[in-house]
Nucleic acid binder design. Structure first.
Lengths: 215, 215, 215, 215
DNA sequence: TATGAATGAGTCTTCATTCAT
DNA sequence: CATGAATGAAGACTCATTCAT
């Protein structure tokens, strides 16, 4: 990821001013979209709200994105990509499997806190998934990546005899599912429970169940 | 639940033919709404789609519900109520805590399978929750009920020394979160994994971690 | 044609009030469209102009026609059909070929005078013809019908030895072309020349050239 | 016509390089406009289509023409002028009236074939004529010129006793109308009839009717 | 001169809701 | 109670034109 970022930064400095402007404008529009859509939902958000929020004109927005839907999809990709990159950051981590799992879990937590404002957006996308093949496929890719990272960590744990000989696939699903579910509960009732507590116990429970029992 | 149904049936037989018709019409409308909304989402569904699906006229629908939103809310309540009733059915169950937990878990599973078609509807409601106090409160109530049932079972397990002395609240959240999360993953990628398998391992993992260790 | 009209009238009286209303509304809309489109052209005409001219609401217009283009096409058909029926009226005429030709020619003249206001509409349609297969085909059908009527009259003239042994096809084209061309010139410069005079001489010239020369 | 062209060429060589560039650019724009407008019609053609077709930028086009309408008018003038020049070429011809008429007729034929692609453009202009005084006047001028040339030829024929003592004005209208009408029919149904055949017979018919009968 | 990003008034169309019958 | 024609406010999108660079 770091390497990637460096390359990306370099790329930015290499692009023409014109391309830089285009990138800026697109970010400007997606920033506005993120704010407006997460506040009002895709359907209740008006293009005029994007105009007001972005400070651009209607025409300018349509110059960069051909439709409201295109903006939604671009926003999806941006959120998606950001999360993917955040996840990739953990791959390189070395340490015991449990440490890696904890780092990953904490990253996920941090992630969710950070993208607190994106959660409603996220459920909009999920609601879309049943109707839009394209969205569903992207979400599948996203979770697949997560699963693979976790599977690798769990396999590491098994190999290094930290963990019992569990099924890595199912175990990974358990971890991911747990986090997603907890996030959902927290989204519905953010004041009802503290996020950290909400997170730690279930994680420890799962971890506990796969930790190599002394014999 | 059964008792309830009996009561409901009695109620039906006690009401006047006029009221009976009204209830039938409302169910007709909500049936159509369930189908149409789950297929197209709240926003892409047209009142004319409800007309076509229900076989009623536009005027008839507006006779029984004052707006599209009222139908959405009534549908929410119906889904909500059905789930609540399904959950209540387990309260009376007697058996060991682990048995009850398993029964509850299987009910949840059965539930989800049964309401497979309602899942997209569910995520629409969740997406709504961040913008509509009313929806959020109902969802909170729904999960609160679930939590309380689980807490009771877990407390039973602790009291009867089946389970370790875990925190009932957090443990309940872990179970609920796990199921919700797994459901979400399955919703995104239904073909990717079998539902039963998807469900059993995580459940066993959690259960394993709270089961009283021999000392 | 008369028979047709009678049937049509009967049909009207047989249709339900609902269908009658629909037909009235559609005529109302096409009447407004005729006025507005002929005055402003298809593109400069606004749906709001149709609203104002028809006395109906926007929604009512869209209830009966799904788009502006659908109205244009329906208007085309109405104009087209009216002209076709007017032409058919002449078929039954008996008399010498020359008389029939003159009747037909005068009908065409009368027709054009009557549809003076439709001429700009006509040229809009003709301009459309190069881009819209559908329009082109309808116009082709229209002129085909005209040609066939004329061919029949000319063949009658040849058979009855009123006319020389000319090629009926080409001769028919000459007559039709002449009338269309004269109409076009008159459309461009209506004050520049009187319609009757504009019409008679060319007609007589053509007629003269095919009249059986005494030998 | 040739003389004119020579003058034009001289003019070009006399102007400054700056003016020469301007003339080139304007032709470039009108060339693109001719292509785009005849393919898509005035209304469906976008300024961006002109940009793409001309290879110039938006700004450049607006540098040379202040509006889309100005381009339409300039294009009209260019087409108009070209046709006028073609017609003028015949004025000088000497020969019998019938020869001149035939030359003129063949020129018109050639003209139409040559401007086959411009016909839809032509009908766009004609459709415009009813709404735009300016366009109507130009078209009137155009046909007036044609009429005058024909009148001169016909008067020549009468004077030289080739033709009967017909009314030159009406006879000219007959010839022009005939050609315009035939062109229209061919535009609607180009495959339905061959152009040459479509043209010759009517012409011969008219000619036949005015040719001096032997007495 | 030339560019093309930006503007924003103007359009068609949609669709929840109403109401005369 | 029921119908479905009618309403009209509202919204996404277009595109001729402008103007900073």
């Amino acid at each position: 990821m770091f390497g990637y970022k460096v390359i990306a930064d370099r790329l930015v400095s290499l692009v023409s001013p014109k391309e830089k402007l285009e990138q800026e404008r697109r970010q400007q529009i997606l920033d506005a979209a993120e704010t407006v859509f997460s506040k009002q939902g895709f359907n209740d958000a008006r293009m005029d709200d994007l105009v007001a929020e972005s400070g651009l004109s209607k025409g300018a927005i349509y110059w960069y994105y051909k439709s409201k839907d295109a903006i939604i999809m671009a926003l999806f990709d941006r959120v998606f990509l950001t999360e993917m990159k955040a996840a990739e950051a953990i791959i390189d981590a070395d340490g015991t499997a449990e440490e890696n799992l904890r780092i990953f879990s904490q990253a996920a937590v941090a992630d969710i806190r950070h993208f607190e404002r994106l959660m409603s957006l996220g459920y909009e996308f999920i609601a879309l998934a049943s109707r839009r093949e394209e969205v569903r496929e992207k979400l599948q890719g996203y979770y697949k990546m997560y699963r693979e990272i976790l599977i690798r960590i769990i396999e590491q744990g098994i190999t290094e005899e930290e963990f019992d000989n569990v099924d890595p696939q199912n175990t990974a699903m358990a971890f991911i599912g747990l986090y997603e579910g907890i996030a959902l509960l927290w989204f519905i009732d953010p004041l009802g429970l503290e996020w950290d507590k909400l997170t730690e116990t279930p994680f420890d429970m799962l971890l506990d169940s796969i930790r190599k029992k002394e014999s």
